[in-house]
Amino acid sequence: MAMTKQIKLLVLLTFLVACSTDPEDIDGSDSIHPPIYGRIQLNFPIDDSNVPNRCIKRADLSVAFTADSLYRKKFVTVSNVSDYQSLYEYSLKPGSYYYQAAKTCVCSGDTCLWGGYPGGQNGMKWTLGNFKILPGDITYDRINFN
């Protein structure tokens, strides 16, 4: 008989524990985890006005926390850039970031020199930019080579 009482008490306690609600749960702030990552879409177009597009190849797109880190090659990520992909998307922790992008000209003759590529063929143009990542947001930026 005493044993049955103990079992009932145990079952009751189990239910009480199971129904216990923390204040955090009631206001819902902890039941759905806030997003800890945001996304950035970097558009890397090939649109030189003086050089045919077939001569231009994407060479680099790297992201770092600071401009100084870019210089020191302390990157967050380095993209596998392609001539068949213009939009590059990253999922990153919130904060501010810097990126560097490079494109090269591979055509012979004066084509690349005329397009402003230092040294002509295989010369590279570089650019820098920055963006902010907000949790849960998707931001967009277009890479420009001045």
Binding site: K57, R58, A59, D60, V76, T77, V78, S79, N80, V81, S82, D83, Y84, Q85, Y88, Y90, S91, L92, A102, T104, V106, N122, M124
Partner: peptide, 23 residues
Amino acid sequence: LLDPAIVPGRTITFDTISPFTVR
């Protein structure tokens, strides 16, 4: 075969953010 390709300045990355894609 489109990618990977040899382009001056281009590198190959295996990291957790940027995928390596064969095209």
